[in-house]
Amino acid sequence: MEFLKKLVPGFVREDFFRKLIALAFAILVYMMVSNKIGKESLIPDIHVSVKLPPSLVMIDEASCKVDVKIRSSEKRLSELVAGDIKIEAKVDESLYVQNKPYTLTLRLSDVKAPFGVTVLEIQPRSFQLAIDKLMTRNVPVKVSFAPGGTPPEGYIVEKVTFSPPEVAVSGPGRMVSSLEFVSTAPIPLDKSTTETFDYTIPILNSNKNYLTITPQEILAQVEIVKKSNSQLFRAVPLQVLTGPEGKNFKVELVSTPHIDVTLSGSKAALDTMKKEELKAYVDISGFNEPGLYSVNASCSTTRQDVHIESIYPIQIQIKLTKIN
């Protein structure tokens, strides 16, 4: 203690705390005065951090920049770096009107500057924001295949089934409501693809800044089948199948005595198929009374390498007349 007394002059030790307070005030006054008479500077393109309520979302943040005029000592200004000045403003949901721009007005108190820096002005003081209601809806998924990728000749993609078949898309209402579908990333196919397969595939999102998709990946089942050709056989004559009672009726094919039959199968099988190998008929064995009836036409063949795809017309008008 005696050592400190010798080291610190007596005039300093006397009434020490009062002198310490006076020194602090002197430093504060110096800083305030130097700040008042300091140099002004305009800091351009300060990003405004906009705080939104949970029910709203920003569409475009390009306009969220302002210039800030400040005053400080020349030394302090030379030490400022990007990011030292921050601006944060809140959107008042009660002032939001749907489908109209929101005018955000900044206050000087919204600007956070380092100690010793005074904020003088914000340019512009207010600007418009593109804001929309947050919307979430389920959107169907559309398949996308890699360019040039196809199964080998004779095989086709019959269908693609997704699990889940829809994904949830969240974002600005005007974007989400106009979205008809989302696409998968390209699914690869090549000449060795001859069987049905499952593939986990991401969902493409070209608006990641505004839209979120859940889930981001889905399971796709790609069904590969052999390609089948088809061929139309026109005017195949109709036969009438009757039961025991049918012998007592005269049968008249009112609408048409012929039908058109479409067959499917390999090209080689269809090339050798003849119309005479088709048996087209109507069955009236269930009718016991005379009258005008509508019955379905049928067709069969003994060939195992072709399949009957369709018959036209399928319904045939017949007239049964009692034979005396």
Rank of each mutant, 00 (worst) to 15 (best):
L241M: 03
S310H: 07
T200W: 14
V182M: 06
N209I: 00
I316V: 12
C299A: 13
D260F: 04
Y293D: 02
Y281I: 03
Y312C: 00
I311F: 01
L241P: 00
E289I: 06
T194K: 14
D198K: 14
N288G: 13
P290Y: 01
A297P: 08
F197A: 07
D190G: 15
K274P: 01
S298N: 11
E195A: 14
Q317G: 08
S230Q: 03
E217A: 07
D260K: 01
T214E: 15
N209G: 00
L219G: 00
G243I: 11
G291C: 08
S183Q: 05
S192F: 08
P215E: 13
K191M: 12
I318E: 05
K275F: 02
L241R: 05
V236S: 04
H258F: 15
L232G: 12
V236H: 06
I224N: 07
I284C: 09
T302N: 14
V240T: 15
K274A: 08
T302R: 11
I318D: 09
D271S: 15
R303K: 10
I308T: 11
I213R: 12
K279W: 06
V240K: 07
G243Q: 07
Q304M: 10
P290T: 02
S285Y: 07
K250R: 02
L270P: 11
A280G: 10
